[in-house]
Simulated scan of single mutants.
Amino acid sequence: MMSRRQGFQLAGAAGLAAMGGMLGGCASGGGAAGGSSGTAAPSTVRTPVGFAVPPGACDCHVHVFPDPTAFPFWSGRAYTPPVATADDLLALQRALHMDRVVIVQPSVYGTDNRATLDGMRQLGPLRARGVAVIGEQTGAAELDAMHAAGIRGIRVNLETGGVTDPAAAGRLLDAAVARIQGRLWHLQIYARLTLIEALRARLAALPMPVVFDHFAGAQAAQGVEQPGFASVLELVRAGRAYVKVSGAYRASSEAPDYPRVAALARALIAANPERIVWGSDWPHPDSVPVAGRGATDIAPPMPIDDGRVLNLLAEWAPDAGLRHRILVDNPARLYDF
């Protein structure tokens, strides 16, 4: 069984890291996975986009997984994704009519942000920004270099680390805040609703923007009355937090249109349309353990149709002006485009 320290290490790789000491020195270890780096990832856009995507639109949550011989995975990872390069991401951007993108450091690289930074470099500063994972070994000079490269936040992934105790989560958040204090960065958090509710007052008082991943961990089957969702709405309404309406399949198993997710999305948008951003979660890595599949075996991505998922935004926000805020204005402000 994975120890608590190992669990924190895995979570830190996706964003828990800013927490001094939790990742130790495991940032860059790990061998390469199999797979051909020269083969383009298959398109995830099978349904054409059915509405006019405004110029400057941004996909605020993607990952890149380049050639693992050049960018080795972390030895403590929980899964191994197939290759998905910056070129593949650019093809996705064009298919979705997106002009901007935010690359989020995934757990499989630990605190070694080179793959994320290289993806941003390939796409260029007019198109790409990033969210990093840092550890106690990440110094001020490295943070400065990350900012110059386009990093605009760090991720704290409490959910992947199995952190459910509010006291422990609060200590980790405090450490993260201390690491980026004074920088024009935000704190991206993936946590369950019960934690957000328990930490609501602390989150509301943070000196930097807070961004909640994937519908703030809400589950569509439980509706808008589920415990903790009101706290998220309160933070959003007060302008103290952003929410990514991303990864609908993480909030619901009702593929392909996730009908009950609509109530969550509409409630969040109604609370404060200035604090909502959209993300595809491409290339949809599947980190769920599967019997007989080891951490170094390639895990196929989830079979998501990104065109169909983007079309859901037009149902959640039928007004073109609302969509402009979600796709253009809010990301430009949050990620400094």
Rank of each mutant, 00 (worst) to 15 (best):
G25H: 12
A270R: 00
A230L: 10
R293V: 02
Y249K: 05
R152Y: 10
Q9G: 15
G30W: 03
A169W: 00
L327T: 01
L16W: 07
R237Q: 09
V210D: 03
V131T: 05
N113P: 09
A241E: 08
L172P: 00
A95Y: 07
Q219V: 07
I134Q: 09
L89Y: 02
T194D: 15
G153K: 01
L123Y: 07
A251L: 00
T44L: 15
A13P: 11
R114I: 11
G31N: 04
R4Y: 11
R127C: 11
A332S: 05
G130C: 03
F229K: 11
P66T: 06
L90Y: 12
F71P: 08
P331H: 04
P300E: 09
A295S: 08
A41I: 13
W278E: 02
E225W: 13
R333K: 15
M120G: 12
A332P: 04
L92P: 01
V83T: 02
V64A: 00
D87M: 09
L126T: 14
R114F: 09
V309M: 15
V62K: 08
S37A: 15
L23V: 13
G31V: 08
R240T: 04
T138Q: 05
V62Y: 09
V288H: 13
A57D: 01
A270V: 06
V210I: 11
S107E: 13
A204N: 05
I189T: 12
G56K: 07
F51M: 03
E234D: 14
G38H: 15
F8D: 10
A299I: 10
A175M: 08
D88T: 03
L173K: 03
V45L: 03
L310D: 09
P42H: 08
A128L: 00
A255Y: 11
Q93P: 08
V131P: 02
P209N: 05
C60V: 09
S280M: 06
D118S: 13
A11H: 12
S252D: 12
D305H: 10
R293K: 14
A149H: 03
Q222V: 12
E197F: 05
Q6K: 10
P82K: 02
A251R: 00
A14P: 11
V104T: 12
H324S: 04
A95T: 00
I276G: 07
P227Q: 13
A201W: 06
A241Q: 00
G162S: 02
A168G: 12
H214M: 06
V62D: 11
P72I: 02
I304L: 11
M120R: 08
Q105V: 00
A248C: 11
L126P: 02
F71E: 04
R323V: 04
G135V: 02
P166S: 03
N113S: 04
H97P: 02
G135M: 14
P256N: 02
L322D: 10
S28W: 12
A320Q: 14
S37F: 13
V288F: 10
I196S: 08
V328P: 04
A267D: 01
L117S: 04
R94H: 06
H186P: 03
E142G: 04
M120S: 02
Q93W: 06
R266F: 07
R202I: 11
D59I: 00
